[in-house]
């Protein structure tokens, strides 16, 4: 870990550790619930990639916005989205953050600056640019952060958005979570070169390629990018290299849409972002008792969320047609 490069206080690292653990534990529970057939909505788990959401979002204020995609449970939670409402949404319940209209792939928490995650690959990259535009036009210091995968960089959205953001010097951080796969396809089957971060230079945007499993490094790199953006310096592109442990969608482990990834996976699991943070905390003098106290606390949160989701009602079929437009009375 990169403690040498920054002076992160134990309390901050501990809070990021807790965020990662929250994401990990809820998603492990979700995996079980999918297996048990209690959750039907397609769930793309971010297990193994938690450090990116946690490290970036630890720098953000509620007035800053984030934007995500199909694999966004972690983004939602790291930005402060309500865990109960997320789980209820996965259950298709009226108590969910999208009131049962969105499922796992369409999460929302406007109260904390998450205006929507959607599964069309790359769709929210230009939206994040637009939020940065709004911030700049209103002379605010708010930044926006766009989270997307390596696959998303193959869409025109990505390249057009980089240019737009660079041209107008917009306060947006492009965070690419490069986990080397877009569903069944390895990056080497989709790109002539594994060099996503270099797209920054061609647009005059500062860019870095970093270890996305090192939460301190993510935090610190994002902090610099965000300060740069807040002070009018414009966008930054961060390519965070990581690996998802589970399959593209659903709880499967090694067998990912027909691909065996066992060897790679084993190597990456040795670099578990949560374990790495834990080791670092102990190095920083946090006692293992203190750390041990975090686990049950998070477990309780997850249990409470599950109880909430189960107890919540399904949306009323007679309210199916509501909310096509705002201002026509909300559905339950």
């Amino acid at each position: 870990m990169s403690t040498e490069t920054n002076n992160v206080k134990p309390a901050l690292l501990q809070s990021m550790y807790q965020t990662m653990l929250r994401i990990r534990l809820i998603e492990e529970r979700v995996a079980d619930l999918v297996e048990a057939g209690e959750i039907l909505t397609p769930c793309h788990l971010t297990i193994g990639q938690e450090a990116i959401a946690a490290g970036v979002c630890a720098n953000l204020k509620p007035t800053d916005s984030i934007w995500g995609g199909h694999r966004s449970h972690g983004h939602y939670l790291a930005k402060g989205g309500d865990i109960k409402k997320m789980l209820a949404e996965l259950f298709g319940k009226a108590g969910g953050c999208s009131k049962g209209r969105g499922g796992s792939m369409h999460l929302v928490a406007p109260e904390v600056g998450l205006f929507g995650t959607v599964p069309l690959v790359a769709a929210t990259i230009p939206l994040a640019v637009g939020a940065a535009m709004a911030s700049k036009l209103r002379n605010e210091v708010a930044v926006s952060v766009s989270f997307f995968g390596d696959g998303a960089t193959e869409e025109g959205h990505f390249h057009e958005s980089l240019n737009l953001a660079a041209l107008y010097r917009l306060p947006v951080i492009f965070v690419c979570e490069n986990n080397f796969y877009a569903s069944h396809m390895h990056i080497s089957e989709r790109r002539a070169k594994d060099n996503i971060f270099k797209a920054g230079a061609t647009h005059g945007i500062p860019a870095e390629q970093i270890d996305g499993n090192d939460v301190l490094l993510v935090y610190d790199t994002a902090r610099r990018a965000i300060e740069h953006a807040r002070s009018g310096g414009g966008p930054t592109l961060l390519e965070c290299r990581t690996y998802r442990w589970r399959g593209h969608v659903g709880p499967a482990w090694d067998l990912d849409v027909g691909l065996k990834r066992n060897d790679d996976l084993k190597g990456w699991m040795k670099r578990d972002p949560i374990e790495m943070a834990r080791t670092e905390l102990i190095k920083l003098g946090v006692s293992s008792e203190q750390l041990g106290g975090i686990d049950p606390e998070v477990r309780e949160e997850v249990d409470a969320a599950l109880a909430f989701a189960r107890a919540s009602q399904y949306p009323l079929p007679e309210e199916l047609l509501k909310n096509l437009f705002v201002g026509e009375g909300e559905a339950q």
């Binding site: 039907l40 298709g92 049962g100 209209r101 969105g102 499922g103 079929p317 199916l320 096509l324």
Partner: peptide, 11 residues
Amino acid sequence: PDIPAPTSRAL
């Protein structure tokens, strides 16, 4: 009907 597809099984 004139709405996008909802997710919840109930809908």
